[in-house]
Amino acid sequence: MAEILVLVEHTDGSVKKVTTELLTLARSIGEPSAVFIGSGADEAAATLAEYGAENIYVADAEELSNHPVAPAAEVLAQLVSEKSPAAVLIASTAEGKEVAGRLAVKIDSGLITDAIGVNSDLSATQSIFGGTVTVTSKVSTGTPVITVRPNSAAPEAAAGAGNRSDVSVSLSQGATNATITNRVEEKKGGRPDLAEAAIVVSGGRGVGGAEGFEVIEKLADSLGAAVGASRAATDAGWYPHQFQVGQTGKTVSPQLYIANGISGAIQHRAGMQTSKRIVVVNKDPEAPIFELADYGVVGDLFEVVPQLTEEVTKRKG
């Protein structure tokens, strides 16, 4: 079976869910090999094998993490030339897409981003124009480089050999000419990753202020959900920017998206329209977001949301 390279997304060796999804997807089109860059491979190895990685290629030189994007592309390019895989799968995050872009240039291959499915002939399904059109595209040059959106496949374990081998890469000048001098954390901890979460609870201008987000956070925590925000809310400084959902924020595709006090502007829809189920709370019955709702309540979010939180907590027992 043809080898499929999967770039591992992780935080210090803790493997992100999207990687288990990509490994699952890779098994349906070939034999997955995980490419692990950074430190923590020992911790990650078991999970990677559990989800079917036959090989785990580890590149763990310190300089790899000192520069944005380009080092990962160089590691992958080297592996593509050594292993001649049938395809490379990368998570469709902002950084993942940039890695994919540089890789495609290096190996002179075609690139497909934001896939929601990959077929056995290596064509990919994409959802475009804010989820209104589905296209099937195929790379016609070189080794297909495909970025896949989180939540596109349900992860299923199926043990792989997990043979580990180390990869050493000497970075080119072009990969080291931009340097990360500091990493600043602004994240509110403890909740699932927004792009990967199975449930997202979002707040917009209707939340009325930073304090109002407490109501949103409480509902999110009762459901084990991530918190999102509209641009109106992030621009006003009520919630940090990295939680913005939409065209210029994150694209999310959870099992359940709950929009509270959000009107449903086209730029917001572009980031959440492919959610499997959408629940809306808005006091304006004319708000366009109701067009997307599987279930909607016309009402004041400060009444409805706390009651829902209470009810969820009760039912979860």
Partner: peptide
């Protein structure tokens, strides 16, 4: 280096249930 093989419009979401609080 890549081509669109086919595309189709996604049917609009089925109308949901909207209730007043």
């Amino acid at each position: 280096t890549s081509t669109v093989e086919s595309f189709e419009d996604v049917p609009p979401r089925a109308a949901g249930t909207i209730v007043t609080d």
